[in-house]
Structure formats: structure tokens, C-alpha cells
Amino acid sequence: MNDQLLWYTTRAAGAVSMIMLTGVVVLGVMSTLRATPRGLPRFFTPALHRNIALVTLVFLALHVVTAVVDPFTSLGWTAAVIPFSSYYRTFWLGLGTIAFELLLAITVTSLLRGLLGHGAWRAIHWLTYAAWPVAIVHGLGTGTDAWSPWLFTLTCLCVGAAAFVVVYRFTAGSTDPLAAQRASFRAGVDRRPDR
């Protein structure tokens, strides 16, 4: 395959992965907020979040594979698996490896959620809040097009969208419909005299 074509594909797949990953984060936060379009059942947003996450992994794999097999950089598969083992742009590529492996861990544990239990799955899923910024920094640090106006604009839009939903998620009140009942139950339990 043409080396240039591999290089263009790596860059393009990286940009697409960034956009899709941002979409996955936004959908994930919307799931937490129980935000669902009117007239649709509540499983709609989480299910779409899961499907888009799986599609995103395909494009991330395309990004990684085309980068590894590109003879110009001769990265090798070790660099794709072991963070900071690449001789080429060691730090920035290492961040990309970390982000990819975090996302892989999040996806695998989500698929095995039934075996892990909700608590463990939830704890690992919090890694998303680390994986996404690490991926963005990787792109800014090593992306050939990172500072091109078109990709920089897209990056800013992605950062804005993710920042908005994350800030909203942490500032909005509880979306649990039974929150009031739970609070009153706990208060009642706390008021019970010790035996």
C-alpha cells in the first residue's frame, strides 16, 4: 500500500476517532443524566452510547493499525501496546497508547458488566474522564494536522461539547427519581435510637 495513503488514513482516522469519542462521552453523560428524547424509552441513550462506543473502537483500531504499519515511522507493535516505548515522539505516542488501552479496558469491562458487578464496572468506567483528555492531548501533541485551522476548530468544538456536558453533569442536581424517598429513608434510619 502507498505510504502516503497510510499516513493520510492515520491522520483522518485519528480526527474521526476524536469526534466519535467526544460523542460517546456526551452520550455517556446524557445517560447518567437520564436525558432521553421525548417519546423514546429510557434505554435509548445508553444503548446508543454503547453502540457508538463500539463503532469508535473500530476507527481507533484503524488509526492505530495504519500508524503501526506505516514504514516511514516504523513504530512496531510494541509501541502500540507498551506506553512510552516508541522511539518516535515517545511522550505523545505514549499518551495515545494509554488512552487506547484505557478505552479498551472500559469497553471490555462494559461488555462483561454482568460478571463484574455494578460497583467495579462503575469504578472502571470513571476512567473515561481520564482517557478522553489524554486522547485529546495526544492529538494536539503529535497530530500532523492538530494546528491546522480545520482540525483545530473541530478539536475546540469537541472540547467545548465535552466540557459543557461534564460541567452540567457535576452541577446539575440528582436525576434519580427516587432521590427524595431515599434521602428521607436514610434520615429516618439515622434518627432511630441506638439499641
Binding site: 491522520r11 483522518a12 474521526v16
Partner: peptide, 10 residues
């Protein structure tokens, strides 16, 4: 988008 971004990047 991969195709479009590839062309734009190129």
C-alpha cells in the same frame, strides 16, 4: 469523514 479528512489533510 475518514475519506474527507484524508483529502483535506492531504
Amino acid at each position: 469523514a475518514v475519506g474527507v479528512f484524508g483529502v483535506v489533510g492531504a
